[in-house]
Amino acid sequence: MVLNWKTGGVLLGLVFLMAVVLVKPIGVSTQFVIFDGIVWDMVSPDVVVEAPEAKSGYASPNAYLNKSGGKYARNVANPLNYSFVFVLAMIAGAGLSAFLRGGVDRSERTMPAIWQANFGTSSWKRYLVAFAGGFIVLYGARLAGGCTSGHMMSGMMQTALSGYIFAAGAFAAGIPVAMYLYSKEA
C-alpha cells in the first residue's frame, strides 16, 4: 500500500526540488498563524490594518503579525497568496490520494494501532493527547521559525545551519519521548 522508501524518497525529493526550482522552499507551519490571524481579524477587524509606511503595506498591533515589516499581516489580509494556497492544496492532494487508495481503514481513523497497543481503545484519551501534541508542536515550530518541512527537509536540503540545529532538537527530544511513551510495539 505504502510506497517503498526508495520510490517514495525519490518522489518526495522531487517535490521539494520542484518547489525550489519554480518558487521557493516548502514550509507549512507559518500558515497556522495566518489562519489564526484571518479568524482573529474577522472577529476584531483592527488586528490587521493597512499601513502605507510599513514595508509590506500592512501592520498589526500584535507584535508577531507585525514582525518583518508586517509580512504576516499582509498575508492575513490577502489569504490568496502562494504559501497559504500551497497548504490548502496540500490538504486537497492528501485527501485525493487517500480517496484513490480507498481511504483509511475504519479501525485506524480514531487512533493508530500502536496507540491502542499502549493506551487502549478510549478515543477521548487519544484525542486529548493529539490536541495537546498539536499545541506543543505548533508552539515549538513557531519558536523555531519552521517545522519538519521548512526546517528539517527544506533547511537541510539547502545546507542551512538552522536545519541541522532544528533536526538535532527534534530528534533529541522525540526519540526518548517516543521510546518512553510507546514501550509496546503494535
Binding site: F32, M90, V137, G145, H151, A167, G169, G174, I175, V177
Partner: peptide, 26 residues
C-alpha cells in the same frame, strides 16, 4: 532560515509533540 537558540528549543518542543501525537504540522 536564521539560526538561534529558539530553533533548538522549538525543535525539541516540536519533537515532544511529534512523538506523542505522531503528527507534525504538514
Amino acid at each position: 532560515k536564521a539560526a538561534y537558540l529558539g530553533v533548538f528549543l522549538g525543535g525539541a518542543l516540536l519533537g515532544v509533540g511529534f512523538a506523542a501525537a505522531g503528527y507534525c504540522p504538514g
